[in-house]
């Protein structure tokens, strides 16, 4: 897949590094993952399968996916816009803006939920107004979407900013000076360059959106079969002494994380194909990726 590099590490270094990296991953990620599945299958296949087919669990899966699907486009648009402004232009207050984008990371999820209660709750600023019009935001779907937007807000932007900085602006400048419109430049130059970063960002934001517990827990109201997302449902099952159900639901979320594997493989495969086609079309020109 990768071009063999002229300047590469010696095999000894390579093996050591691989061992350290993989060891770290196994120790910190692999074992917990195995533990989740061990717990989920503690009573065998049948209870696991049964737990997953419970009506409330299925509903929670649907709601979790729905929230993520609504949240992602907003944060993709924001992430690309913010990264474009920050990475390609110099302006006053840039570090401040970057820091403000980071801020939701540092806000404890519990506090994040609280923020929106302060605004939309019955005793919040907008509470009386919302109640007089009988609009439900908190303890209903909109509140959960807003809380998830807040929690996943920085991911895509933060993924793209260092990448676009490292790439500089020469390529886009060249495209524009060659007469490309803004849209063409973005579509043909910027997007292909940032696709990896964007993909990582989307995967992370998606994982986080689906796995978020603290903030959503504050604004959801926990109504069974109605406003319970999968992470909330996991907690409820656990508190109901239903270990198998809880870890079965958790294993679904863990599997969602592994969806990355499929997404990345597909993208890689397509890119390889594109490159091939490009190579065939332009035999003399050296291709980018």
């Amino acid at each position: 897949m990768k071009v063999r590099r002229a300047a590469a590490e010696t095999p000894a270094v390579r093996w050591t590094l691989t061992a350290i990296g993989v060891g770290f991953l196994i120790f910190f990620l692999g074992l917990p993952l195995i533990a989740v599945f061990v717990e989920a299958f503690r009573s065998g296949w049948a209870p696991y399968w049964e737990a997953l087919q419970e009506k409330d669990t299925l509903h929670a899966v649907g709601l979790t996916v729905l929230v993520a699907v609504v949240v992602l486009p907003f944060n993709i648009a924001f992430g690309v816009a913010a990264a474009w402004a920050i990475a390609k232009f110099e302006f006053w207050g840039k570090s401040l803006l970057t820091t403000l984008i980071d801020l939701p990371f540092a806000v404890s999820p519990v506090v994040a939920g609280l923020l929106f209660i302060l605004i939309f709750g019955a005793n919040g600023w907008m509470g009386p107004l919302l109640q007089s019009h009988d609009i439900k935001i908190i303890f209903a779907l909109p509140g959960m979407i807003i809380a998830t937007l807040f929690i996943t807000f920085p991911y895509i932007a933060r993924e793209l900013i260092p990448l676009m900085q490292a790439q500089g602006r020469e390529e886009e400048e060249a495209a524009v000076s060659l007469g490309a419109t803004g849209f063409q430049m973005f579509w043909r130059v910027t997007l292909p360059n940032i696709k990896w970063g964007l993909l990582y960002g989307v995967i992370l934001a998606n994982a986080r959106a689906m796995g978020e517990f603290g903030a959503v827990s504050v604004v959801s109201g926990h109504i069974r079969g109605e406003t319970n997302t999968l992470p909330l449902h996991v907690e409820i099952l656990y508190n109901e002494y239903n270990s198998v159900g809880a870890f079965a639901a958790a294993s679904v979320l863990a599997l969602l994380a592994l969806v990355t594997l499929i997404a990345k493989t597909i993208v890689e495969w397509r890119m390889a194909k594109e490159t091939e086609m490009l190579n065939a079309a332009l035999p003399t020109e050296k291709t980018a990726s």
Binding site: G121, A122, G127, G221, G225, E226, E240
Partner: peptide, 17 residues
């Protein structure tokens, strides 16, 4: 319909709407 979570947290939610 049922809603379950920590007691105090639940009551705060009721107070908040």
């Amino acid at each position: 319909k049922q809603s379950h979570a920590g007691s105090t947290k639940q009551v705060r939610a009721v107070a908040d709407g």
